[in-house]
């Protein structure tokens, strides 16, 4: 439920050695659209997400959400971090209700939703556990639950399922699709996994090597609702071949620039 527009967005980190992470990124995301970002490691995917979240400002260009400049981070844009980034001193339950609590939502308004969300991600029995007692995948699921509880207008997800085993991963993908179809949230989803990108997204954006641009956008016209079974259809395979070719050329490009 949020429209995102990036115009000529560039980002340079002025660290000891200045790093130009993003170079002229143009991207339009419609309200309720599900966009996947694919790209080689270190190309600037997290950087782009950080700009959308409001954690970092763009060095050049304009980043707009619903027509206005992207401001400070806030609960309208839920971020799922690459490493779960849970508060280790809070229990799973306290982590999940942290958002509503900070926003001053009355307890009765969020408690049922939070409980339901914990059950959905399969962690009902771990409400009173501390993050140190969970596996990496379980922590990641808490990170997803705490964001969904806030019912954000946009979901910014940074390789959220990267640490999960194949089974949990599929379950989480289906959960995400269900939630997305129900809430009609705008989703920006960073991933390394081509199958995952095709399965989930309306559009797959392949980023070039650093400094990154959006190399190519490939709309995925597979009918919804989609399921894991679609992975084996000929259309799916065609999309996959197309994206792999694109990524290979991005990789070659990276090697020539590095040389």
């Amino acid at each position: 439920m949020a429209e995102i527009t990036l115009r000529q967005v560039a980002k340079t980190y002025f660290s000891a050695v200045p790093v130009r992470a993003l170079d002229s990124v143009d991207l339009d995301i419609a309200e309720g659209e599900f966009v996947a970002l694919l790209g080689p490691s270190g190309c600037g995917k997290s950087t782009l997400l950080n700009i959308l979240a409001g954690f970092e400002g763009a060095s050049e260009g304009s980043a707009l959400i619903d027509g206005g400049a992207i401001g400070k981070p806030g609960p309208d844009r839920g971020v799922v971090f690459q490493e779960a980034a849970l508060f280790p001193w809070l229990t799973v339950w306290e982590n999940v209700v942290f958002g509503p609590k900070m926003q001053g939502v009355p307890r009765s308004d969020y408690e049922d939703r939070a409980r339901e969300m914990l059950a959905t991600v399969g962690l009902k029995d771990f409400a009173q556990s501390y993050p140190a007692q969970l596996s990496g995948g379980m922590r990641q699921r808490v990170g997803i639950a705490r964001v969904l509880v806030m019912q954000p207008r946009a979901l910014l997800m940074d390789e959220p399922f990267g640490a999960l085993d194949a089974q949990t991963r599929m379950a989480m993908q289906e959960l995400l699709l269900t939630v997305w179809e129900k809430l009609n949230t705008t989703v920006v989803f960073v991933t390394h996994d081509i199958d995952e990108a095709i399965l989930l997204a309306d559009r797959v954006c392949v980023m070039t090597a650093r400094p990154a641009r959006i190399g190519r956008e490939i709309p995925i016209a597979l009918p919804r609702p989609r399921s894991i079974d679609d992975l084996t259809t000929p259309e799916f395979t065609r999309y996959k071949a197309e994206i792999m070719a694109e990524m290979r050329s991005a990789h070659r490009q990276a090697e020539t620039t590095a040389a």
Binding site: A53, F55, K72, P73, G74, P75, R77, G78, V79, F81, E83, A85, L86, F87, F98, G99, M102, Q103, R146, M150
Partner: peptide, 17 residues
């Protein structure tokens, strides 16, 4: 840890929180 602060900001925490 930087991401913990970012997570809190993202969830609507104020400066004092």
């Amino acid at each position: 840890e930087r991401n913990l602060v970012r997570a809190a900001l993202m969830m609507g925490a104020g400066r004092f929180d």
